[in-house]
């Protein structure tokens, strides 16, 4: 129980740290009043600008503003979006289903491809299937996602015209963004599965299992793969963060209407409350998913106890 409490507290510290960065982001880029008003200030008097500053609370000391920011954020109040004219948190929450949809499909895709490929590579070391898989993994880890996205668009959208290039509305719209988002996790998990499997295949208990006459299929699935899962699960936990963070780029490139694109658009329109709400919400999800993964260790490997 103390382990669970400790991990929860660690997650709170992470989110707290992100809140500090998100808050000071607004001040590091200049006077928030000037930033928010932008060209609109050209037609305002100095007095009107000052009134706006007071109305927004930017005239208060930074620590008062930060305390107020945290107090409100805990209640889900991140301020009011200047461009959307609705609560910033609501703007993010409305876009969250699209991001979760894309990230989930990329997540499932990465597991469905990476683990079987990793297993195939591991049980056929240095054979053509292993070399091809390793090469594909190398490409997946090396190609920047934005570049892969453009290549996918050119091939499947422009050349073959099989898939829509951007936007949303049909399952076809999901294909290219999901592949682009999943490419890196596929490569990483495939390599991880392969190396972890190869490690365990040298262990004595595997040799014993084979000597007992257990089928190779059962040896691989029940003995080797099950034991190899722990490092993969750790990577999968981190992957949730990667997929949510990576969606900022992928959503922007493919015009996918999720949180990532909303944050980029909010940065462009200086809608800092939306940026803050988006960054903190993503950080919170990342922390919670990692917490769940940590707690799931004991289920995967009963030898790991919370107290240890």
């Amino acid at each position: 129980m103390s382990y669970v409490i400790r991990r929860v507290l660690q997650s709170v510290v992470v989110v707290f740290g992100v809140s500090i960065v998100a808050f000071f982001m607004l001040f590091m880029t200049g006077d928030p009043t000037e930033i928010i008003l932008g060209d609109g200030a050209d037609h305002m008097t100095v007095q009107q600008i000052e009134e706006f500053r007071v109305k927004m609370g930017f005239d208060r000391p930074w620590y008062i503003q930060y305390a107020s920011f945290v107090g409100n954020a805990v209640r889900g109040d991140f301020g009011y979006s200047f461009t959307r004219h609705q609560p910033a948190f609501q703007v993010i929450i409305e876009k969250m289903p699209a991001t979760i949809q894309l990230a989930s499909i990329a997540f499932v895709l990465s597991l469905l491809i990476s683990i079987p490929l990793g297993v195939l590579s591991a049980i056929n070391p240095h054979k053509p299937i292993d070399r091809i898989s390793t090469f594909v993994a190398l490409l997946g880890q090396s190609i920047p996602s934005f570049w892969l996205s453009i290549l996918l668009m050119l091939l499947f959208g422009v050349k073959l015209k099989w898939l829509p290039i951007s936007g949303s509305g049909t399952w076809q719209h999901l294909v290219m963004p999901a592949i682009a988002l999943a490419a890196f996790p596929i490569a990483r998990n495939m390599r991880l599965t392969r190396s972890s499997m190869l490690d365990f295949m040298q262990k004595d208990f595997v040799r014993t299992a084979r000597a007992k006459g257990i089928s190779e299929y059962r040896v691989v699935t029940s003995h080797v793969l099950r034991n190899s899962l722990l490092p993969i699960v750790t990577a999968i936990g981190l992957e949730a963060g990667f997929l949510l963070g990576g969606s900022v780029i992928i959503e922007t490139i493919f015009g996918w209407p999720g949180v990532g694109r909303e944050i980029v658009q909010a940065i462009g329109s200086k809608d800092f409350y939306v940026v803050q709400a988006g960054v903190i919400t993503l950080a919170l999800i990342f922390a919670v998913v990692n917490l769940i993964i940590d707690l799931a260790y004991s289920w995967i490997d009963p030898r790991i106890g919370f107290g240890s």
Binding site: M153, I165, S166
Partner: peptide
């Protein structure tokens, strides 16, 4: 479509 390369491809 926020990204210029995507608009070009469209």
């Amino acid at each position: 479509v926020p990204e210029v390369a995507t608009r070009i491809n469209e």
